[in-house]
Each structure stands twice: as C-alpha cells, then as structure tokens.
Design a protein around this nucleic acid. Structure first.
Length: 152
DNA sequence: GCCAACGTTGGC
DNA sequence: GCCAACGTTGGC
C-alpha cells in the first residue's frame, strides 16, 4: 500500500465537496500534467491512502484523508468539447489523460502548510521543494505517520 | 495581483 | 532537437 498527497483548490473542489458526493466518491479528473498522470496511471492502487491538500486559498494545508477506490481509467472530461478540461489532441482510441477514483475517509483539523514547513522531520516532502508544482506526489510511510502525529 | 519556477509549444 | 515564448501553478 502506498501513500499520496493530492492537491485541490477548495473553491473548485474541496474536502467537503468530496464528503457530500454520492458514496463520498469522486473521479480525480482534470489532471493535465504528465508526471501526475503517470502516478495515477502507473503507481496508484486500490487501497492506497492520500492526504487531501487545499491549495490556492487563504489557509493552504492538509484537511483530510481519502482512499483510492478505483484504479486509473481514461479521464472522460478530455473528450467533452464543452468541458474545460477538453483536450482536442486526445482521442478515445489512444487516451492521453487518466484518473483514479477517491473516497472520503476522514476530515482532519487543518494542518497548515506553515506548520508542515516548520517540521524538520518533513523536510523531505516533495511539496516543500523549491518550485514544486506537482498536484499529486507520493509520500513515504514515515512522512505519513509524522503528519498524522501533528493532528492527533 | 505579483512573480518565481517550471512545463509545454512550435518555429526553425 | 534546440530554445524562446508563453501559460500555469500556487504561496504570499
């Protein structure tokens, strides 16, 4: 089982949106970055856990936990010309973008980015690295445990 | 709203 | 295949 950190802007889709979805489940679609796509397509498995991270908002940080409940399949938004994630260069025969599905597990008391940054044990976190822009990053079991320590 | 960082695009 | 221009991300 692997651990992940997945970013989303709460004004677009936040932890409460996930919690209120039918079955508390949602496709993690709209990812248009190859590295992030590869993580979903090649490395994510059912049963993996992920932190839900709120970005581009007044209080950026980790807000909850979700579980991967469906492995990667072609992201259907890429084929819909009316969708903002439409990709005219992709096609059904050879899809370019993939998504997994995630299910809400638990809300956490917000762990602010500021606190994460100040935790020396988390210095290895990819999202803290200079210039990081990846919306999906793997995290280690150790990092996961340390973050859980911060809110328990 | 600014801006640094970095990925993507497309002409050559 | 290089690289300048451009677009996006995301904290502040």
């Amino acid at each position: 089982m692997k651990y992940w950190l997945m970013k989303s802007e709460p004004q677009v889709f936040g932890i409460d949106d996930l919690k209120s979805r039918p079955n508390q489940t949602e496709p993690w679609d709209g990812i248009r970055n190859y590295q992030a796509r590869n993580f979903m397509r090649d490395s994510m498995n059912i049963g993996d856990f992920a932190f839900f991270y709120h970005s581009s908002c007044p209080k950026p940080g980790i807000t909850g936990i979700m579980e991967v409940t469906k492995s990667a399949y072609p992201d259907k938004t890429q084929f819909d010309p009316n969708n903002k994630y439409y990709d005219p260069k992709s096609n059904v025969q050879n899809p370019r973008w993939f998504n997994v599905e995630v299910t809400f597990k638990e809300k956490l008391v917000l762990i602010p980015l500021h606190d994460i940054r100040n935790n020396i044990k988390l210095a290895t976190l990819q999202i803290l690295k200079r210039g990081n822009r990846l919306s999906i990053t793997p995290i280690t079991k150790k990092e996961w445990a340390e973050i859980m320590n911060m809110c328990r």
